[in-house]
Design a protein around this nucleic acid. Structure first.
Length: 477
RNA sequence: CGAGGUGUGGCUCAGUUUGGCUAGAGCGCUACGUUAGGGACGUAGAGGCCGCAGGUUCGAAUCCUGUCACCUCGACCA
């Protein structure tokens, strides 16, 4: 009986302390280890495998839209960073500077890239001459550095892994189309693969990216009701092109500026997976992203033939990512371990099963047990994984929807913030003063103006002047 | 970066208020044996310059100063 208790002691309950629960899961599932470098984490094999799966599948999505991968330098000379005014102002406070090469002081200091717009622009200004050179659809997978004040594994670290796509187009229309297209790629990926429903929308002027003419975002709700900006796509218009002089000759032999976009997602997505799907026993991974989809756990494995059966089963399931836990831990230990690491299903196989030509399949998310005949185990595993993937998305969606509220005035708004957790839908006049006031009074920020607008009211929730957009508000990570 | 909190074997902590024997416990780890359908048990063992650097003192895990890391809440961001 003390066994169940022990499990509870391992991970802090998420209802008791969500932040501590998150830290426990991240450590106990062996996703990361803290490093001796301030604000930087060591991504362990299991955590990195999740990122690799994201990379592999998302990279294919990018390439399907014509994107090619490149690699840019990790240093940016100060003069280059300075070229676009808003951009420097946004990033200067959080860049790391390299001032020396060996013992020699550098003529010009260089920062470690916090993002690579300036490098891509410099590059594009050299290689784009004609309308025939357009569009350029480049992406890079790399790490960037931002001198963050406070850090959390996957959610905010000083160095993080991401991808940044940078495109250049002949027209404003094309650039806008690409900006939205990539946002769709992200949202679709997150729903299909990560089982996380996203709200697509536009950021307010205040929240948009430094140097962008417009920023679009995908926002997800975590289990504690807080919002996580999970990916962004920016339309730069021709602002960077003018700052970096990226011009081409069009069909009429006229010089034109290009229109650019950039878009990125990061290892923060791993944090989203943890905080959307995890439970008090640990991580729960959607089957399509799990490095191990099924763990076969032999029962009484010392008994003649049991391990052989387990290995045999593994071979039969070779079309899935399957492992056998043949360590000499007790079965109970292995169950807990499999749950902690969020492995979607486990398959128990013991003497009793072997005798009856069956195995026990247990789903991680619902803990539902299924007695399955060996004759149909491949199809059953496949079915359970598909069902689990679909159910996880639906569960996340209904959690989000049931934690989304409507406010028509500030009393309602403040009441919701005080008594509930989640998103608030409210109308906005688009005046930054109201945005600031709401933040001041409630701590909630504008998450986005969703593409799917609803006419909740015709007056701004804050100032009562005519409303322009419905906005999702919430407390954010 | 502002306010608060915590740093003692791998983990969770006791000991710090009131300085004083060889720094403890549980879990984990290693070996052997017995076990096995929800974190098994026995026996034997290994493992700690008490976050780090200074200082006070005959004597510091304990007092003082500084510093670093982590956690919570703000400000900032993917």
């Amino acid at each position: 009986m003390s066994k169940g208790k022990k499990l509870v002691e391992e991970i802090t309950s998420m209802d008791e302390d969500f932040a501590q629960w998150y830290t426990d899961v991240v450590k106990k599932a062996e996703l990361i280890e803290y490093s001796s470098i301030r604000g930087c984490m060591i991504i362990r094999p299991y955590g990195y495998a999740i990122w690799e799966n994201i990379q592999k599948q998302m990279d294919a999505d990018f390439k399907a839209t014509g994107v090619e991968n490149v690699y840019m330098p990790m240093f940016i000379p100060e003069s280059l960073l300075q070229k676009e005014k808003d951009h420097v102002e946004g990033f200067a406070p959080e860049v790391a500077w390299v001032t020396h090469g060996g013992n020699e002081k550098l003529q010009e200091r260089m920062c470690v890239r916090p993002t690579s717009e300036t490098l891509f622009c410099d590059f594009y200004s050299n290689i784009i001459h004609s309308y025939r050179d357009l569009p350029k659809l480049y992406n890079q997978w790399c790490s960037v550095v931002r001198w963050e004040k406070s850090t959390r594994p996957f959610l905010r670290s000083m160095e993080f892994l991401w991808q940044e796509g940078h495109t250049a187009h002949a027209t404003a229309e094309e650039a806008e189309e690409r900006t939205i297209q990539m946002l769709d790629v992200y949202a679709d990926f997150c729903e299909r693969v990560l089982a996380i429903p996203m709200i697509k929308g536009q950021k307010s002027e205040k929240e948009k990216f430094a140097g962008a003419s417009s920023t679009y975002t995908i926002e997800a709700m975590m289990h504690d009701g807080k919002a996580l900006q999970s990916g962004t796509s920016h339309n730069f218009g021709d602002g960077f092109a003018k700052a970096f002089d990226i011009q081409y000759t069009d069909k009429n032999n006229k010089l034109q500026y290009v229109h650019q976009t950039s878009w990125g997602v990061s290892t923060r997505l791993v944090g989203a997976i943890i905080m959307v799907h995890g439970d008090n026993s640990g991580l729960v991974l959607p089957p399509r992203i799990a490095p191990i989809q099924a763990m076969i756990i032999p029962i009484n494995q010392k008994k003649e033939g049991v391990l052989d059966k387990a290995y045999e089963l593994k071979d039969r399931l070779s079309s899935f990512k399957v492992k056998v836990d043949d360590t000499d831990k007790s079965p109970g230990w292995k169950f807990s371990e499999q749950e902690m690491r969020g492995i979607p299903i486990r398959i128990e196989i013991g003497p009793r099963d072997i005798e009856n030509n069956q195995a026990v399949i247990v789903r991680r998310d619902t803990r539902e047990k299924l007695l399955v005949s060996m004759d149909e185990i491949e199809t059953k595993v496949s079915e359970v994984l598909d069902k689990m993937q679909a159910d996880m998305l639906e569960r996340a969606r209904s959690h989000r929807d049931s934690h989304t509220y409507i406010a028509k005035d500030m009393d309602e708004f403040e009441d919701i913030i005080k008594n509930k957790t989640g998103f608030i839908k409210a109308m906005w006049c688009k005046d930054e003063a109201c945005e600031m006031e709401i933040k001041e009074r409630t701590g909630a920020t504008s998450r986005c103006m969703p593409f799917e607008q609803e006419q909740i009211d015709d007056k701004c929730v804050c100032c009562k002047k005519p409303a322009q957009d419905m906005v999702y508000w919430g407390k954010a990570y």
